[in-house]
Design a protein around this nucleic acid. Structure first.
Lengths: 261, 261
DNA sequence: ACTTGACCTTGACGCTGCGTCAACCCTCCA
DNA sequence: TGGAGGGTTGACGCAGCGTCAAGGTCAAGT
C-alpha cells in the first residue's frame, strides 16, 4: 500500500496534482488508514499514469474522465477535437510571433510600414520629436479606424512633404510646440497666423483637386473628432488654432473638409 | 468625451477588458461625469490601442506597462524574451500534438509500439480481453518504471509466445479469469496446478539461461510489488496462485526471481 | 409624464491546473 | 525523546477576462 507521496513519485507527478485529481473526481479517493492517510493500491498507479499520459497530450482534465471510459470511436472523435483545438492554439501563437516580430522591426507600435516611413520623413524635414510623436498617435487612431484604407492615403501624404510650404508648416508647428508661450498669448504669435494660412491653402488645394473625395470615408466620423481632441489634449494651445481655422471657413483641423455652411 | 462603451468599441475590445486594465493599473482611471460614468479623451483611445497591439502580440499584461515607457533597447530586449517564451509555448503544444497523434494510432494509452504488438499477439494466441487488459496495465507500470529498458525486453517476451507451453498458460489463465469459480474452490481446480507448473518451468528456464540477469533492473523494486498487487487487485483469486508459486520456491509472480533466502 | 431598452456602476464568482503557504497531526529513526 | 520528513484540510494566487447580480442613468418614443 502506497502513501500519496509514493504514488505521486512513481507516476512522476506532484502530490498536489494527485489531490487535485481527487477534488475534481478524476481519480477516486482511496481508503484511509487508521491515521487518516490515503492508501493506494496498484490500480491507482495505473490510473494515475493513464491520466498523466492524456494530460501531457494536451487533453483538458475535464475530458480525461470521459476519454478513459470511451469506446474506440468516441475516443478517436475526442482526439480529433483536442487536436484541432491544439492546432488553433498553435496558430494563435504563431500569429502572435509574427506580430511581435513586426513590433521589433518597426519604429513603434503596429503602424504599417508606410506610416513609419512617413514619420521618418517628417523627422528629416525638421519636425521635432514631440511633433512626430503627436503625428504617430494620430495615425494610430486612423489606422485603427480604417486599417485597409490607410495605405492608399500615404502616397498622397508623402507627396505633400515635397511642397516647401508644407515643410515650413511642420517646422513652424514644431517650434510652437516646443516653445513656452502662454496659452493666452498664443494667438498673437505671427507664426500661428502663418501656420493657419498654409493649412487653409492646403485645404483649398485638396478640395479643388478632388483629393478629399477619395474613398468611402464618411465625413462625420468619430475618428475626426478624436483627432481634433487628441491635438488639443497634447497641447491645449491648439484650440486657438482650430478656432482660427473655423473662422476661415474650415471646420476641422486634421480633417480639412468643406466649409460648414 | 467618450463613454467606456464607445472607447471599447473604437479599440475593438470589450468593456470588461477596459475595466480590467483599470483594475491592474495598466490604463489610468479617467475623470467621472456628474452621474459617475467614466469619460475618456482621445489619448485614452490611443493608449488602449497600444495596449491591445502589444497584448495581441502575446505580451503579458503585466509587462505592457513597462514596455510602453521603455527605450528602444529595453524594448527590443523585452521583445526577445516574449518571443522566446512564445517559441517555448508553441513547442510544448507541438509535442502535445505528437503525443495525441500517437494516442489515436496505438491500441491504447501511450505504450511503445512493441508492447502494443505484443498485446495483439496475446489476443491472437487466444488470451481473453480481460487477460489482455490486465497485461496492458502491467506493462503500463513497467513502462513507467523503465521507459528506456522496456524495448529491450519485448523481443524476448515475444519469442516466449512461440512456446506452446506459454500459449497454453495464457489460455488457461484466461479461462480461469473468465470463470466464476469461488475463491475458496480455486485451489482445487486442476488448471491452477497446470498454470503453476508452466510458470515454474518458465522461471527455471529463464533462470538457467541467464535471461533474468539482463539489464540493471534491481530485484527488490517497488515496481515488482506493484505488479503483484495489481494482479491480486484485478482478481483476488490470484493470491492463491502466488502462494503456490512461493511454495514451489519462486517468490514472485511477475518477477520469477531466484528463491528467497 | 411614463415606459422601454440600451448603457453605465460596483462586486463577486468562474475558468485551468495546480503552486504555495498555514497550521496541525503522524511516523520513523538515531 | 526529539526532530526530520512524511501526511491532513483549507485557502489564496496566477492570467485575462466572461458572466451574472442588482441596481442607477440616458435618450427616445408614446
Amino acid at each position: 500500500m502506497l502513501t500519496i507521496g509514493q504514488l505521486a513519485a512513481y507516476a512522476g507527478v506532484t502530490v498536489r496534482a494527485v489531490r487535485h485529481y481527487h477534488q475534481i473526481g478524476l481519480l477516486p479517493e482511496p481508503e484511509r488508514d487508521a491515521s487518516g492517510y490515503r492508501r493506494y493500491g496498484a490500480a491507482a498507479v495505473v490510473s494515475l499514469i493513464k491520466i498523466r499520459t492524456l494530460a501531457n497530450a494536451g487533453v483538458p482534465l475535464s475530458q480525461i474522465g470521459l476519454m478513459l471510459e470511451a469506446d474506440a470511436s468516441t475516443f478517436a472523435e475526442a482526439v480529433q477535437r483536442i487536436d484541432s483545438h491544439l492546432r488553433g492554439e498553435i496558430e494563435r501563437l504563431e500569429t502572435s510571433r509574427k506580430q511581435i516580430a513586426q513590433l521589433a522591426a518597426g519604429d513603434s507600435l503596429a503602424l504599417p510600414p508606410e506610416v513609419i516611413f512617413y514619420l521618418d520623413r517628417l523627422r528629416e524635414i525638421g519636425a521635432s520629436e514631440r511633433m512626430v510623436e503627436g503625428e504617430r498617435d494620430g495615425w494610430i487612431l486612423v489606422a485603427a479606424r480604417w486599417p485597409d484604407h490607410i495605405r492608399d492615403v500615404m502616397p498622397w501624404k508623402l507627396a505633400q512633404l515635397d511642397d516647401p510650404q508644407v515643410v515650413r508648416l511642420y517646422r513652424v508647428l514644431s517650434e510652437l510646440l516646443e516653445s513656452e508661450l502662454l496659452e493666452s498669448d498664443a494667438g498673437d504669435d505671427p507664426r500661428v497666423e502663418e501656420a493657419v494660412d498654409i493649412m487653409v491653402g492646403m485645404a483649398e488645394q485638396a478640395y479643388t483637386s478632388g483629393e478629399m473625395d477619395r474613398g468611402e470615408v464618411v465625413r462625420d466620423d468619430l475618428a475626426f473628432d478624436l483627432l481634433d481632441a487628441l491635438t488639443v489634449e497634447s497641447d491645449p494651445r491648439a484650440e486657438r488654432l482650430l478656432d482660427m481655422l473655423r473662422e476661415r471657413g474650415w471646420s476641422r483641423w486634421t480633417r480639412l473638409a468643406e466649409p460648414t455652411d
